[in-house]
């Protein structure tokens, strides 16, 4: 009697055909992200690798050496799909539709021998389930990489230091302030203080969604570091709900100058540097002389 691997090998072309049919009939097929030729080529590679692997009569351990190429190809496909924006369902359907194709062939070939069929189906099912776990693991890892890269990009672009006046810097913080972000904020701010010789820095937290004790601690650290450099720090943009949480959490900001708006912080900065802003007394009527 032929082994499972031999039976499948004999039907290689039909399996591929069935598998492609299954994939193409999936409602979720993304022909916008991938052409059917590409899909065909990908599936062919995958099937070749899989048949080669099970020709060693190993249906259980996908970490064995003969499966290396299968898992590698699968990881490759999953990670590409994760980056291209496929959904988990679409990615999972790839392996699951192969399972369906393999099962159909076995059912046909072993019609007269239910006992063998039963055993073989279980083995193939287990194998393909294991492979789909690999698919998911890799898919999620791929998505995490995307997220990580975006986090890096966000923290880099979102901390501009603005010179609002001679000797006065402003730094609007947008988004959550975690410890990695705090370090970038501090580095940018302190370096700019040195570069411009500024005495006052305004940290505007209007764009920070929530202030908990950890965020407050990061703010206090930034203020302390600024003071060590010899500059003074004002925190502005404290909304009503932020003031409420700060008090409810018992966070002590009494040593720090705080203002509700950037405008009032700027005013305070002016008075600290003995500057005064006045409306100039222009003669009216000149504009109408035409």
């Amino acid at each position: 009697m032929n082994t499972t691997a031999q039976v499948l090998e004999k039907n290689r072309n039909r399996i591929l055909e069935l598998w492609m049919q299954n994939q193409l009939s999936e409602a979720s097929l993304r022909d916008d992200l991938m052409t059917s030729e590409e899909l065909q080529r990908q599936s062919q590679d995958m099937l070749d690798a899989l048949l080669r692997a099970i020709s060693k009569e190993n249906y259980g351990n996908i970490y064995a050496q003969e499966f290396e190429q299968v898992t590698d190809t699968l990881r490759d496909i999953s990670i590409t799909r994760a980056r291209q924006g496929f959904s988990p369902r679409e990615t999972g359907a790839y392996v699951l539709s192969l399972k369906k194709a393999l099962s159909e062939i076995l059912v046909e070939e072993r019609a007269e021998d239910p006992t063998t069929l039963y055993k073989e189906l279980i083995a193939i099912n287990n194998l393909l389930d294991n492979l789909s776990i690999v698919t998911f693991e890799t898919f999620i890892k791929g998505r995490e990489e995307v997220i990580l890269r975006q986090t890096d990009e966000i923290s880099e672009i979102s901390t501009p230091v603005i010179r609002v006046w001679d000797g006065i810097l402003a730094l609007p913080i947008i988004g959550t302030l975690d410890s990695a972000r705090t370090q970038i904020v501090m580095e940018n701010l302190l370096q700019e203080i040195v570069n411009t010789g500024s005495n006052i820095a305004i940290l505007d937290i209007s764009g920070v969604p929530a202030v908990d004790s950890l965020v407050a601690q990061h703010l206090i650290k930034t203020v302390s570091a600024t003071r060590l450099m010899g500059a003074e720090c004002i925190i502005s943009g404290i909304r009503a709900e932020i003031a409420q949480t700060i008090v409810h959490l018992g966070i002590d900001l009494s040593n720090i100058k705080t203002k509700a708006s950037l405008a009032s912080a700027l005013q305070l900065a002016f008075s600290m540097t003995n500057l005064e802003v006045r409306r100039s007394e222009k003669k009216l009527g000149l504009n109408f002389s035409r």
Partner: peptide, 12 residues
């Protein structure tokens, strides 16, 4: 006077 930024961050 003149503390370097990296030193200030570390001290804090």
């Amino acid at each position: 006077v003149g503390m370097q930024p990296a030193v200030a961050i570390t001290l804090v």
